[in-house]
Design a protein around this nucleic acid. Sequence first.
DNA 1: CTGTTAGCGCCTTCAA
DNA 2: TTGAAGGCGCTAACAG
Lengths: 341, 341
Amino acid sequence: MSKVTLREVAAHAGVHISTVSRALDPERGALVNDQTRNRVRAAADELGYQRNAVASGLRRGRTQTLGVVVPDLGNPFYAPFMRGVENHLEGRGLMALMAETQDDHGRLSRVLDHLISRQADAVIVASARSGDERLLRKAQEQIPLVLAVRHLPGAGIPAVTHDDERGGRLAAEHLISHGHRRVAQLHGPRDVSSFRGRGRGFVDRMRESGITVREPDDAAGRPRLEEGRRLMKQLLAESDDLPTALFAHNDLMAFGALQAMGERGLSCPLDMAIVGYNDTPMTAFTDPPITTIRLPGYELGRMAADTAVSVVENGPDELKVLSLPPELVPRDSTLRWTRRG
Amino acid sequence: MSKVTLREVAAHAGVHISTVSRALDPERGALVNDQTRNRVRAAADELGYQRNAVASGLRRGRTQTLGVVVPDLGNPFYAPFMRGVENHLEGRGLMALMAETQDDHGRLSRVLDHLISRQADAVIVASARSGDERLLRKAQEQIPLVLAVRHLPGAGIPAVTHDDERGGRLAAEHLISHGHRRVAQLHGPRDVSSFRGRGRGFVDRMRESGITVREPDDAAGRPRLEEGRRLMKQLLAESDDLPTALFAHNDLMAFGALQAMGERGLSCPLDMAIVGYNDTPMTAFTDPPITTIRLPGYELGRMAADTAVSVVENGPDELKVLSLPPELVPRDSTLRWTRRG
DNA sequence: CTGTTAGCGCCTTCAA
DNA sequence: TTGAAGGCGCTAACAG
């Protein structure tokens, strides 16, 4: 493997290694005589020198590395998110260390320890849940943190999130305007602020129109397809007086609900309309295409990365909290009902 | 930030720092007296010591880091792949540095340089294309490489791939058995071995049954939805004598083809049957659900990570090349045609 | 079993 | 503008 170090380059160029170090660093290159610098660069090129970022990181105390922690890489929402992060880092000489928590507190703890040990310059945490506050605050003493997607209000950590409550209201308004009065929701895990926000917004807006939102006894343990299916089955079993519309707290749960309906011989939107959340790419292609609230993953990723970088460079800003607005994307899963109603 | 180093722990425990280093390393812990070790551990816990992995990496020449390079994080196929990698590393104390190439040669080159500079212990390359051989061979002199998903036969690099040619044959057999005799394919980028394999297998098998495979003049520049749509439009425009079945080289292109059909008022599978490739999760939910060839992303990710780890630990094995078998997943996009035919 | 010594490769004073 | 020296935090070889 490569053993070309500053020493070899220095010998080759006939200068001291500290001169090479300076000449090869864009920031300090100006401190070196033009001729010398060219000579050094030529030598470096010829020998195929590549700076050892580990040694550099140790000395400088900066590793040019960001940790990115997501709950579930299997959730298609996080692909654009990671992409947004990566695209923002690429070209800046930074790279992302990736980790998944499976919404497990212990795992989050281990991941953070790991990232601290590796001296990541900052960590983007997209998997925060209530109950993680203490852990995160403690971690923050060791390493700059930026929350993304899921907020943790009051924890004093900068965040790049999304107005979930407004999203819930949008879903409610859409259904109300389509004439629905018997509605239900499949609630995502209650220890995640995003789902609480969605639920609150939806219920509040419905209540303003005098409508009570039904829910299965359970909330989802994980915001995944199987849980959506399970809850929907429960809902369908609970009564014959079925709701005419459903708000699922994310698209995966909406798919699960769709499956459960299919298994019972019910069709969407005729028997029940469905609104999902996230605008996962696949919602446009399902049968029927699903009306959903757009949560801009790519943009959130970019902004989270941007915030993290600026926190590293300028120190923790005055607790920056950004929130992107939701947007309703109407599709066929809420379409036809009006024709009947 | 944390400044607890071995020195502090040593002082606290009243021993030399090298003893602390030994006591805290599971591998060398046995070399230390039990009492001493306990004392050291207690001190470390009390002070909240966390080993500096950067310093350790510099000294040991091992960073416990793997690079993972994929072509496109937006392609849903790579989510399970990355997940497989991550899950295999988690628990082993390794982490993945993630990068995307967008199928761009220059970008791959930069990414590899970066990973070399960061002293990753090995790199999993899932974005190899013909034309990258020289680059990759050169990189391999500096850092162990493992190819995943896309093979580069003859480059002398260990690989964890999939039998694409067999997959293409499976697609052909399925269509033949459904009575199709006029068939076309949407070819993925020709500089990627996987697509060449799929194309070859499909065409060969069809030829064995005396069937000529039609293709639009172009191949896809990128294996993405828009390209699938574009090619399909081209195919539909080229003649009135439309094929009765289509093989798209991946699911995204199949979606694009489906869109193009919809825009022309054609329906699948009645007007044309479609077979995709990858078994992306969403293929089960589209309208119609798409028959596809399963490419096991999660398993490939795990195996690639496993291979990379073993290459790091045991040195480059005798050019290990693993290949997982494909499997046809029949769904509705090829269903009804038989009822007519 | 524990301490001493000598770096890993780089960057940053400080001096010349 | 360049060189010399010291050390980031850790570990490996050698002594004792």
